[in-house]
Amino acid sequence: MSELAITGFSASYGSFRAVADVGLTIAARAVTAFIGPSGCGKSTLLRSINRLHETVPGATVSGTVTLGGEDLYGRAVDPVEVRRRVGMVFQRPNPFPGLSIRDNVLAGVKLRRHRLAKAAADNLVEVSLRAANLWDEVKDRLGKSGTSLSGGQQQRLCIARAIAVEPAVLLMDEPCSALDPLSTLAIEDLMASLRQDYTVVIVTHNMQQAARISDATAFFSTDGPRQPGRLIEYGPTTTIFSRPAEQATADYIAGRFG
């Protein structure tokens, strides 16, 4: 349905190839984790799934990414449309400056439908903030600036903003790396519930986190600096963490490099 299939995929920045020849199929309504050492191309691959990679000057891709059978890089496909169906949460919380909590949640929706009845908007704000486990903390100050919240709350606001447009896929690029342990716990709990409705792909440096929250894990690595990242091993998280097939995976998980 909203299954993601990546085949023969490479991504470059100018002449530097960051990801080479990756192929994997990401199941719908599950959490898939991308792990691997820094520079292994996992973030680049993630940013290719919503075509954000190409907003960097000089960036190019080859290969295909399909969502529910539809080629996201097809000739007639508008990248703006792709991004509306594939939401993203970033490493650092990035609510829009000068917008209230409410307007931040509605920002994506307002891009699509300029007229939104107040009752419908109110309802959407509440549903999205509840889904992001933030409603109870902010329901009395929806008019306050989004940047007035704590880091963990801002990140949940960004999740609410991403899911308010009801994407099929939710990409998360190290969503907890700038957060304290309590906020991290809040986001991890949230991901467990998001799995029921969304195809979630998360890049993380935290292997315990990958083990806790993901159903499938893809391990990426490179042969060295300035070498392209490759997919080393991909499978159910329990298998990857208990009986990895590749020595590199076992070494990485055991903390022997990376």
Binding site: N50, R83, C158
Partner: peptide, 10 residues
């Protein structure tokens, strides 16, 4: 980061 957030929302 704000610009990326906007792009990512479509």
């Amino acid at each position: 980061s704000s610009a990326e957030a906007a792009y990512a929302l479509g």
